[in-house]
């Protein structure tokens, strides 16, 4: 399958600067649209009982994954949360493998052992979704420590939410990462709700970037609905990290349009609030900007959209047809058995 549209754009030798920018914008739009179409299909599949478990949708937050991950390269590593479909897809984990994992199939990116909340792809240095809020943050620090001790060029990006900002693991790790100068991007997706608890009911001081800065690292807030602003901020942070300035913190101010999970009746938010945020839909914002710059028209948008829908269709068809793990393999991958060793990196 084609993943070319998710790679960072490089100016073509024969193209103009405007062409390069237009292509780059198309890549970002495609990255966000794929996530949107993938998750819309997940809603249908969940309702049809094709996929089960907890499913946490990212719809509305696509600019964060698309923008931040565009600033990373293949040598960098990513640690995600249980709301991770967007991160996995934007990182280039094949759509087929993610969908098959949702189905619990053997062809899933975690062989059906993880499901929606635990997508892994070590070949893309995607170290998975963590379903304990804040639990991935120390892990990301460890990946960064290994990078630093080996003198590698990689940065580690750790996604987490405003809810995780209340966990001790965030604060412990922020301190440790500054102390040790770790190459770590702490990417806080502030979607204003920790499950159903609003930010103001969870944090005495709701300026998260300011609090992160108090640990002694560069930290600032970004409009998380504007993919270009996100990408620009992430690129500057990653440059600083690669220059050896230690960890950076970005507060990406975003909003989820759907409920916390498929189980959530969403009783704690005003419909008007959700509607207000929908006027700042990140896909729509970029689409409009591209149209006004003459980078996109109805036909090219429809073509892009169709490509994403087709990719999701193919992934669903493949997942439907895929085999499941034999029950006889139940106890595999618990401890190492001979012949069952993964390649150590």
């Amino acid at each position: 399958m084609s993943t070319s549209h998710r790679k960072p754009a490089k100016p073509a030798h024969h193209g103009t600067h405007q062409d390069a920018a237009a292509k780059h914008h198309r890549d970002l739009l495609a990255s966000m649209l794929l996530i949107r179409r993938f998750e819309e299909r997940c809603v249908e599949l969940y309702s049809a009982a094709k996929i089960r478990g907890f499913v946490h949708l990212y719809i509305g937050e696509e600019a964060v994954a698309a923008g931040v991950l565009d600033a990373l390269g293949p040598a960098d590593a990513v640690v995600s949360t249980y709301r991770e479909h967007g991160h996995a897809l934007a990182r280039g984990v094949p759509t087929d493998a993610v969908m098959a994992e949702m189905y619990g199939k053997a062809t899933g990116c975690s062989r059906g052992r993880g499901g929606s909340m635990h997508l892994f792809d070590t070949s893309r240095r995607f170290y998975g979704g963590n379903a304990i809020v804040g639990g991935g943050i120390p892990l990301a620090a460890g990946l960064a420590l290994a990078e630093k001790m080996r003198g590698g060029p990689g940065a580690v990006c750790c996604f987490f939410g405003d809810g995780a900002f209340a966990e001790g693991e965030f604060h412990e790790t922020a301190n440790l990462a500054v102390l040790w100068g770790l190459p770590l991007l702490l990417a806080c997706e502030n979607n204003l709700y920790a499950m159903g608890t609003p930010l103001r009911a969870e944090h005495g001081q709701t300026d998260l970037a300011m609090r992160a800065a108090s640990y002694g690292m560069p930290a600032w807030a970004v409009d998380g609905m504007d993919v270009l602003a996100v990408e620009d901020a992430a690129r500057r942070a990653v440059e600083g990290i690669r220059a050896g300035h230690g960890p950076y913190f970005l507060e990406l101010r975003t909003y989820r349009f759907r409920a916390h999970s498929m189980y959530d009746p969403d009783r704690y938010r005003d419909k008007a609030e959700v509607e207000h945020w929908r006027t700042r839909d990140p896909v729509m914002l970029l689409e409009r900007r591209m149209r006004s710059a003459g980078e996109l028209d109805d036909a090219s948008y429809a073509e892009l959209d169709r490509r994403c829908t087709d990719e999701v269709d193919r992934a669903v068809a493949a997942a439907e047809a895929a085999p499941v793990e034999p029950v006889g393999d139940l106890l595999r991958y618990v401890g190492t058995v001979p012949g069952d060793l993964p390649e150590a990196r």
Partner: peptide
């Protein structure tokens, strides 16, 4: 859990 959750990818 990481070895198992990742389908054997992680040690």
């Amino acid at each position: 859990t990481l070895r198992h959750m990742s389908g054997g990818q992680l040690s």
